[in-house]
Each structure stands twice: as C-alpha cells, then as structure tokens.
Amino acid sequence: MKSSKLVIAGKELSSRFFLGTGRYPNPFIQNEAIRISEAEVLTFAIRRVNLDAPSEDAILQHLDQDSFTYLPNTSGASNAEEAIRIARLAKASGISNWIKVEISADEKTLLPDPIETLKATETLANEGFVVLPYTSDDPVLCRKLEEAGAAAVMPGGAPIGTGLGVLNPYNIGLIAEEANVPVIVDAGLGSAKDIVEVMELGVDGVLMNTPVAKAKDPVKMAHAMKLAIEAGRASYEAGRIPMKKYATASSGYTSLISR
C-alpha cells in the first residue's frame, strides 16, 4: 500500500493532526484531548502576562515539552511587522523555531491578509524560521508563499471557528495537487466528515482547534478527528472509484439461476 510520511523542514511527523490549545473547558480535558488525538504538533498564541495574576494560563506548564513540536502563532498581528515581532518573541523562548504566520485583515471574518502574510513569510524564512503561513485558499498565493520559503502552506477551509467545512474543495484540491511543500488545511472545519472530505482531496494534514475544544465532548471528538484523518488519508491513497450515473451490479450476469 502506498503510504508516505509527513515531513516538514526535515522533521518526520508521526501524525497528520495538528491540534490547537485554545478554548478547552479546562487543562485536564485539554490534556486528555491531546493524548487521544496523538497529535505531535501543538499550536499556541503569544500574549502579555496578566500582571494581576501572573501564574494563570501559562499553558506549557501542563505539558511534557519533549514529546511535542510547538507551533506558536502570530495571532493578533494585523500586518507583517507585528507578526515578525511576535515570531521573534516566540523564538526567544527557546522552545521552537517554527512559526504559524497568522495576520488577520478583517475582524469579522479573521481572513488572512495575503500581501502581509507573504511579506512576513519571506522575512522570517530568511531569518531561519520554519514558517507555516495560514493563508487563503488561493493556489497562486500558495505557490508564492512556497517560493518565499514557506516550509508548508496552510490554506483555510473556512473562516476560523466557523465550522463551515471546506468551502472551496476545488481550490484546496488544486493546492494539494500543485504544492511542492506539505499542505495543512487550517481553520473552519466542523466535524469528522469535513476532515475526511479534505483529506481525500490529497492534503497532507489538518490543523484544528475549535471543533475539538468546543465540542460537547472534546476528548471523544479528538478521537473522532484522529480516525477521520486516518480514514481520509487511507481513502485518498487507496484511490476512489469514479462516480457513475447508473448502477453496476456487484456480481456478473452470467450463470443466473432464473434463466
């Protein structure tokens, strides 16, 4: 069976599931969800320490740091300059040189700003970061990001947190077909069926946060998503049958008993 591993910037990953760490009911449920998801890459955000309660929400205290690859994001940035600043702060922590460039151009949709995303990707790749830009589902833009040094491209399925699923499967499929770097669909997915659909388009992985964290049972949903990623990938590798308008019998018509 044809089966290839996901490799980003020379690192072979054991899972195609990238999991976010925001909005879980509590750290215990979050850790259980992470464990059952078998995700290796975890995303985080960078924020100011709350000086009135400095100990709260220091998320990495709850995790065994050696077992994961950390992918901090630049959320909150509205242009390349802000994203680059956040990326440098993240790298100064010493835990990772991977960065998810996330530059929102619009408060209502949080859609990424393509021009600023491209600028930040180029600068940070030149500085030695492993850059994974969150981008719109535009095949041409994804090619430009790749040329600018992106280690993977992360087109959105739909706006962040909407759970609308893959709004433009044609574009996502084209990106998967053309890219020379891994394609990770990031944002907008809602349930396991969305995951299977997007994996069958041939993308290399999926980044999720809200659909797991805000599910009624986040741990069970993390499990469902893991299975969906595996099922969708296996289905893609196996190669589906073509769609036809009319029936084909599963058994032949020779030696029919009634004749």
């Binding site: 760490t21 985080f44 320490v49």
Partner: peptide, 10 residues
C-alpha cells in the same frame, strides 16, 4: 518592558 508568554491558541 514587555513580559509575554504562551497561552492557548490555534
């Protein structure tokens, strides 16, 4: 002075 850290995020 800025004092920043990691928080949950996607």
């Amino acid at each position: 002075i800025e004092l920043v850290h990691f928080v949950g995020g996607g």
